[in-house]
Nucleic acid binder design. Structure first.
Lengths: 348, 348
DNA sequence: CTGAAAGCGCTTACAG
DNA sequence: CTGAAAGCGCTTACAG
């Protein structure tokens, strides 16, 4: 320990760097140590520190799709919430895949302070060794004991079905995503359920990866058949899919929304400025990240308390493991379902 | 060490787990140890291991913009190249920002095996403490000793200028990106230089963040003025910017490319399927990531050799620090500059 | 081929 | 308030 030499003490330095000086280090020594630290540009070695304390100060965020702009907002939410206290690191996997058990074991052997898992598949969670603090995000449809933060997809689907029914649509198609993510299944099932209640027939569905081009192709291929079936609206499980449909509709000179209404899920930035603007379910991505970060922080604080055998009345039931948060989502109506939306263009 | 108990040996286990059994452990003991490992589900603790060896087996990728789909391909390239040998982790920063010196120090205190830095600003590199193996990506315009992988932006800009000149454009506008990234400056300067040579006047420029909506707004605001100046083409520093221009052109009922030609840089997937398709400079993103990963691997291997005092004729000069790779880029011509491109639509 | 020992850089009871 | 000591889980010379 270099700093030890520079001052006059030894492990007192540790007390200073970890801020545990309360009535244990004299003001004079604190000053000396801090001076030495600045002079030497000393930084506590993360490895040694983590080993001694049994865990590191990094939080690992695991997710199947780093490149999704929606996910970027989630990340940002997490970062703003926990960024100062912990080092946030993203696990990188093959696009659309959760990390393999082997990778997870390596990750865990870094002894992260906590784990954040976005849109996990059921299998992934099952294979996860019992581990430390963990919060799940966007995990609709997956059984788990872990605390989680989710969107109110059912409420969202209901609003969407109502909206389309009110506009007189009775025959719609559904364009789904193909990742193993449960959230897509939940979106689709919820919509289909509410659609039926409102007298809407979901006569067809198909699925593609989250890619504008793939969605456009799929729609182009399906449209002749859908048209014959009398489809007047396409509900997409993500905005990205919807962009593909909008694009292909333009190519096919289909008037949106007069001949075809289109909706999405997410409310990405582009949905506001596309022409026509996209009617979509706004899923509060940044808030998802923030809420998850907050939960993890609380979990970690609780753990510290427990470690100090101070567990008691301070912690209410819902502050413990198993806490679940659901975020409201809203329907944003734009030109892709209702004429006169902003940025209207094309043949409409 | 749990496994030690299960077998009959002690630190022999370490030899086995690190694969250094060559003539140091009997076949019998190797078998015993492996058996015990499987039985106990033992995983070498990353912390202890890293501390003892002086460095971890994680590689940290630092970049200003995780959400950019272009960057997603870069990440994927890196992953495929180094994924097995090292644990790849992404540093997360505020959108468009490089990590602060404080964050970097924390990152470094994890003793990563290597560092990969994408599109660094000059200031970031200057503030980087002398550290271990590092490879820079897409670092055009930044001075540094470190090995790096870059795109041939000059060649790309030349092709672009040639293309526009051949089409008869003589007055163009440039839509730039606003991140501090040097690569944008280089793109613009290179294009302006070659444009001049080919008799093209770059009469105007503006800049926005990498966002379709922002680009669309900026174009909408600038267009009346540009039109008066006789602008017939807009060159954008990223495809994302170009999407904004295409979108706004559609709203304004401008015929593309007849009244206005549009180009980008990157060749994102959507550029192929948009209508019209986007003429753009294809920057091989995945190859950038792979090449950088390869270089880092070589660096790490070289270091190991050096540590064993075996440095010698095996290592050629250009395998050492300071190695630079430049990747060819090509111009992809589509409907946004030349009539008759694929997926033509709208008023064209 | 194998085990005992020292050490990686820190933190945390524990005596003073 | 402060220092000496043990220990976190591993790896690596070093004797046998």
């Amino acid at each position: 320990m270099v700093a030890a030499r520079a001052g006059v003490s030894a492990a007192t330095v540790s007390l200073v760097t970890s801020g545990k000086t309360a009535g244990r280090v004299s003001a004079e020594n604190i000053a000396k140590v801090n001076h030495a630290i600045n002079e030497l540009g000393y930084v506590v070695d993360g490895l040694g520190s983590s080993l001694a304390r049994g865990r590191s100060n990094i939080v690992i965020l695991v997710a199947p799709d780093v490149s999704n702009p929606f996910f970027a907002k989630v990340i940002d939410g997490v970062r703003t919430e926990i960024g100062d206290a912990f080092q946030l690191l993203l696990s990188v996997t093959e696009a659309g895949q959760m990390p393999t058990p082997a990778v997870v074991r390596n990750l865990l052997s870094l002894r992260p302070a906590g784990l954040l898992v976005d849109a996990p598949s059921a299998g992934f969670l099952a294979g996860l060794p019992a581990t430390g603090p963990m919060v799940l995000l966007d995990t609709a449809g997956v059984e788990s004991e872990a605390p989680s933060v989710n969107f109110d997809l059912d409420g969202a689907a209901l609003m969407l079905a109502d909206h389309l029914a009110d506009l007189g649509h009775s025959t719609v198609a559904y364009l789904d995503g193909t990742t193993g993510t449960e959230t897509f299944r939940v979106r689709r099932e919820a919509f289909c359920r509410h659609a039926r209640t409102r007298g809407i027939n979901v006569v067809a569905q198909t699925a593609t990866t989250i890619d504008v081009g793939a969605a456009a192709d799929a729609f182009a291929r399906a449209w002749p058949q859908w048209q014959r079936q009398g489809v007047t609206a396409v509900v997409c499980s993500t905005d990205t899919h919807a962009y593909g449909v909008l694009q292909e509709a333009r190519v096919a000179r289909l008037a949106v929304p007069a001949q075809l209404a289109v909706t999405g899920f997410d409310d990405l930035p582009y949905s506001e400025t596309s022409s026509p603007g996209l009617t979509t379910v706004r899923l509060p991505a940044a808030e998802l990240g923030r809420a998850a970060g907050r939960q993890l922080l609380r979990l970690l604080a609780g753990e510290e308390l427990a470690a100090k055998e101070l567990v008691g009345e301070e912690l209410e039931g819902d502050d413990r493991n198993g806490h679940r948060v659901t975020l409201e989502s809203t329907l944003v109506v734009r030109g892709s379902t209702v004429d006169g939306g902003v940025a209207q263009g094309g043949q409409v």
